[in-house]
Design a protein around this nucleic acid. Structure first.
Lengths: 346, 346
DNA sequence: GCCATATTCAAAAACGTTTTTGGAGATCGG
DNA sequence: CCGATCTCCAAAAACGTTTTTGAATATGGC
């Protein structure tokens, strides 16, 4: 492959321009105590030598990486894709505008997430950290807070003194449930996302409050916690139907659960929509195409990402905070939110 | 937020153990010239002090980052999600097994990709580079080759002397077209993905070769290049129908194009499948749910990712190469590959 | 009991920047 | 014309590791 082609360092630039190393550094980093003409010369020579400051050296000395790390949890990578990618897109955009680079790392398990954070923070690989899938008692948040390391989460925790952005899942739960009630459904079930995550609890609370506001007591048999593989939406629906607890409508914590639920319904000869109303959440691409279309909630993740990024930048610039932003989701009406079949529609 | 809590450095560990800094370093890095007992002590103290070597300092001195960067192109992030995420998953798995970290950065435009590469390579932020969306004449490949920097691409270029993994799009094009021909279709159109990418050309060649093998000349009017927004599958189908060039089957370069095409067909009262056979590529989740289901090709991206990662590790370990791997896609039969309606089925 | 070789560790150099410190010459106010 | 201030640059320290070099002690062969 020929000669290794030694990369040129700042000394080469200094030599070539006849200036000192320190002046070259200051010129390139935009300090004001360098003559314009000198700066020009330095920039020219640096360009033609193809010089770039070593990341390791500069970040060692300056203690800055100008990098923000987004740690993405495995479950996210697997199922809620479109969701998550436009989020990243927004983050990247707003960070880059302020001279920060976005770097993404993947975590396979919750346990490794911790190790990854330690590796990123304690080894000084980034200036700030972003992550989601927060839990009510989130070790990651506590650890980072104890260390005073800048971070913003997607999702809330029990603690209120840290920065976060979040979708208002309480409102989603409330609106979904209320809509189903107004359509004449008296027994509305809720298939929740894993309750270890904070947002699942928000949605659940919204669901229960809507029932209560409309004078309906909540029935534990109608609340089933769903997972990705252990207990799917299909499993839950099977349980609901075979037990004969008789819901006529279901609010699902996300579209994957809803889709899985619809699958099971068809096997039982229950038509999603006419026989069993259904509202999901996330508006994944398939939602528009399955059957008559799944009624669901769409979230502006791009905007959420932008805010996330801007919040991080503000924090990095010394803004005290805490900053917290809640965004609303939009109800997308499609074919599965039908009135109670035998009953009075709202 | 309390005191800043100074992170402990290697000196603290040395002091605490009564050893020298160099011994601590060698102990922690697994060198053999340190007594077992000593190593234990160092590890204990390091653990309890929460010491981790500064990334900047260690990579500056050792000239190694133990990090591989995957640069993901914007178009990828937008549309071919599931595709792309399981790819990353495979890469991460195989890299991590060898002690390398995967870091992902996003590129917005092709031009910025170049800048990102320069930034990553010339500033020494990673030991190896991974990227896709290769073009026949790919500047990135040439630049990296000239510099002797380790990289593996997803997709081929004109040059044969570099490492790559790729899906065999030639075979996909050939098989799809041949299947349609055998179903009795004499006029098979091909909506290509953007031809600036190498793989699009492979697919096109497969399509043409299949036609030729079966004694059908290829008609330029039946080959239309599609993009994400400028000219979609719907635009192409509209063109095909209004011009009256009369294809009875279409092979689409990917599922997004196919879905868009189906949309347009319905507007013209043409039923995808019965009236116009259709085969896509990628097997995106929607494909299974749209109408009677889109016949398409599924790729084992997890496996591709694993190979990609392993190839990178091999390269980093001094293996000369070039290594190149082609993987096959699997035809997923669904409802759109129907026989020529008026004609003899194959 | 002596030289050669292993074993185990310490001192110091090196990595390539940025930051601190200070100094020479130009400019300015009086 | 002199001291003060400003402008521009250079020398040297510092960042926190890893690597190189070398030395002290223990071990082994004869």
């Amino acid at each position: 492959m020929g000669e290794p082609a030694r990369r040129s360092g700042i000394r080469d630039v200094a030599e070539q321009t006849g200036l000192s190393v320190s002046t070259v550094s200051r010129a390139l980093n935009g300090y004001s105590d360098v003559k314009l003409e000198t700066r020009r010369k330095v920039e020219t020579v640096a360009e033609q030598l193809g010089y770039r400051a070593s990341f390791a050296a500069s970040s060692l000395r300056s203690k800055q990486t100008n990098t923000v790390t987004f740690m993405v949890s495995k479950p996210w990578t697997k199922f809620v894709d479109p969701f998550f990618l436009s989020l990243l897109d927004g983050v990247e955009l707003s960070l880059q505008a302020q001279g920060y680079a976005l770097q993404i790392i993947m975590a396979r398990e919750y346990e490794t997430e911790f190790e990854i954070i330690r590796n990123a923070v304690e080894r000084g690989r980034c200036d700030g950290l972003l992550f989601g899938r927060t839990r009510p008692d989130d070790e990651r948040v506590e650890w980072l807070q104890a260390r005073g390391f800048p971070f913003v989460t997607v999702g809330r925790t029990n603690k209120s003194d840290h920065d976060w952005v979040d979708v208002d899942h309480y409102k989603i739960g409330f609106r979904a449930t209320e809509r189903l009630i107004r359509l004449g459904h008296a027994r509305v079930a809720h298939l929740t996302t894993p309750l270890r995550y904070t947002y699942s609890n928000h949605a659940l609370r919204g669901y229960r409050d809507a029932l209560e506001v409309h004078g309906i007591g909540h029935d534990p048999a109608l609340e089933i916690e769903c997972y990705l593989s252990r207990k799917t939406g299909a499993d839950a629906v099977t349980e609901l139907i075979t037990r004969g607890v008789g819901p006529t409508a279901i609010f699902c914590g996300n579209d994957v659960i809803a889709l899985s639920a619809m699958e099971a319904m068809r096997q039982f000869g229950v038509r999603p929509g006419p026989d069993m109303a259904l509202i999901g959440c996330d508006d994944i691409p398939v939602a528009a195409h399955v059957g008559t279309g799944l009624t669901t909630f769409r979230q502006d993740l791009d905007a959420l990402g932008m805010r996330l990024g801007r919040m991080m930048v503000a924090k990095l610039n010394g803004d005290a905070g805490p900053h917290q932003q809640l965004i609303d989701a939009e109800l997308i009406l499609r074919g599965t939110d039908l009135p109670q079949s035998g009953g009075r529609a709202g």
